[in-house]
């Protein structure tokens, strides 16, 4: 019986940066498992504050999904960088801060910084969903610079950073870039849940 994702994440030293690799053919299944593990197992059960950077799906969608999964949502804040460009901004969440575009990478860093200060915790969690969505909107050099700066900063502050990644054949370069900045990669397909 393989260990489950939540167990594995909880065992990590503070300040770790981890890539969570999802198989696109089993996306929904893997995504639920990841939400459960990150938001429930490591998030709510350790009382930590989770900052969820939503680039793939709007914050409102992730929020309602978490609620449907019975995940406590009180200690989750969102940085939503996708609703504006999806014209999906009519009902903003009160616990979300909206960035005008996934290309505004500095703005994303600033909002994460803001939320870390606003909700200080010895071991906060930052989830970035996902590197692939960011890669659609940003050139590789810029994205690599962004991840280097952000992950180093979060590491120095003992923040656990989880980067979602779908292993697409045509995006091998992204996987390599991410491997350089994370401490380890967890392949969701190989984990128990």
């Amino acid at each position: 019986m393989p260990v489950d994702i939540g167990e594995r994440l909880r065992a990590l030293p503070g300040g770790s940066a981890v890539a969570l690799k999802l198989d696109p053919r089993e996306y929904a299944d893997h995504y639920f498992a990841v939400l459960n593990a990150t938001l429930r197992d490591v998030g709510s059960e350790t009382d930590a504050h989770t900052i969820y950077v939503a680039v793939t799906n709007p914050a409102a969608f992730v929020w309602s999904l978490a609620q449907a999964l019975d995940i406590p949502v009180e200690r989750i804040s969102f940085v939503d960088a996708i609703s504006h460009i999806m014209m999906n901004y009519s009902n903003p969440l009160s616990n979300a801060t909206y960035v005008e575009s996934p290309r505004a990478l500095e703005e994303i860093m600033l909002r994460v910084e803001y939320l870390l200060r606003k909700f200080p915790h010895p071991r906060s969690i930052v989830v970035i969903d996902s590197v692939n969505s960011l890669a659609i909107h940003n050139p590789p050099e810029l994205l690599s610079e962004f991840f280097h700066i952000l992950l180093n900063n979060l590491k120095s502050r003992s923040v656990l950073t989880l980067v979602l990644e779908t292993s697409e054949e045509e995006q091998k370069g992204i996987e390599q870039m991410l491997n350089l900045v994370v401490d380890e990669t967890i392949d969701v397909a190989r984990m128990g849940r």
């Binding site: 500095e106 600033l110 910084e113 803001y114 200060r117 940003n138 610079e145 962004f146």
Partner: peptide, 17 residues
């Protein structure tokens, strides 16, 4: 890059791109 916020001025490196 600088942002004026209620908790004070926040700064992030201006990415080269």
């Amino acid at each position: 890059v600088l942002e004026l916020t209620p908790i004070g001025i926040l700064m992030a490196p201006h990415l080269k791109g």
